[in-house]
């Protein structure tokens, strides 16, 4: 527990602690509002913001934004005076610090490196995240939920967002900050870091379970087909199911949007699948190619 207190009180981690508190407060608050609104709707009562009534941006919004900016400036001044930049030991090229951690906002990416090839975790995923976020307004065809909180009307969108943001981003940061110790080994918050701890573990590639060299052509083909199969099934199967049920949603979405959406969704779900495979089956890579590994 000492260790956790030390971690929390470190000047580096103040930002993370603040972030955790803010995210919890806002998430809880948003859900409470949404549930309350949903109940009102069920009872046939008016939900504020769901009608077409509008307010001028100037001065109503700008004034509040100005106030918030002032609060933030005051907070930053106090913060910058009270806490000095946390310096560590002299840099020494022959002796890197252990654990060597990225800035806190990158720790989610660094945590992904445990499970993925740097090319995937460091390049492909960040690109997918950025482009995926940019694509959201164009993929979202549900007009409801503008100007008021709701859960029942945007169930899927909210759940996917919560999973992608809270679990795959925030949780990974928290793990990276608080649960990773020397050697990037897992430590529970109540455990002391032990620099001499050793864990013997060998990760193997998928095809090696069957005695096939993952670097051979055969292994390459098997691995590749598994990955392609995953994306193929993940994208085609729901299409057929929806098609069969004659889903309105699918019709509204259209083919292009469906392909993009389903690809991004499969990629997102692929991340925890790989994490689980690595943790349970010591899976190293599914598909080994000369250029990248998945």
């Amino acid at each position: 527990m000492d260790n956790l207190l030390k971690l929390i009180s470190k000047p580096d981690n103040v930002a993370i602690v603040i972030m955790l508190i803010l995210i919890t407060v806002y998430t809880v608050w948003a859900f409470r509002q949404a549930i309350a609104n949903d109940r009102r709707k069920r009872l046939g009562k008016h939900v504020e913001g769901s009608d077409d009534k509008k307010l001028d941006t100037w001065p109503n919004l700008v004034r509040i934004e100005m106030l918030v900016a002032m609060v933030v400036i005051a907070g930053l001044i106090v913060w910058s005076i009270v806490l000095d930049a946390p310096l560590e030991e002299h840099s020494n090229p022959s002796l890197t610090p252990n654990p060597a951690k990225a800035p806190w906002y990158f720790l989610g990416l660094q945590e992904m490196l445990v499970y993925f090839d740097p090319w995937i975790a460091g390049v492909i995923f960040p690109i997918l995240i950025i482009f995926g976020l940019m694509a959201i307004p164009y993929l979202d065809i549900n007009p409801k939920g503008n100007g008021y909180y709701t859960f029942s009307e945007r169930k899927n969108a909210i759940l996917i967002f919560c999973f992608g943001f809270l679990v795959l981003w925030i949780l990974l940061i928290v793990i990276g900050v608080f649960m990773r110790g020397p050697g990037w080994l897992w430590y529970w918050p109540w455990e002391e870091w032990d620099h001499n701890r050793v864990i013997y573990k060998v990760n193997v590639d998928l095809t090696q379970y069957f005695g096939i060299d993952s670097r051979s052509l055969f292994g390459f083909l098997i691995g590749g087909s598994v990955v392609i199969l995953y994306f193929g099934l993940g994208m085609i199967l729901p299409y057929y199911i929806w098609k069969k049920r004659n889903s309105d949603f699918l019709k509204k979405l259209g083919m292009t949007r469906y392909i993009i959406l389903s690809f991004l969704f499969c990629a997102m779900i692929g991340l925890p699948i790989k994490i689980i495979l690595t943790l349970t089956l010591n899976m190293k890579y599914i598909w080994v190619t000369p250029w990248f590994n998945i």
Binding site: D52, K53, K54, L55, P59, N60
Partner: peptide, 8 residues
């Protein structure tokens, strides 16, 4: 249609 509501 834009309808004004109470001001901040």
């Amino acid at each position: 249609m834009i309808e004004k509501i109470k001001k901040e």
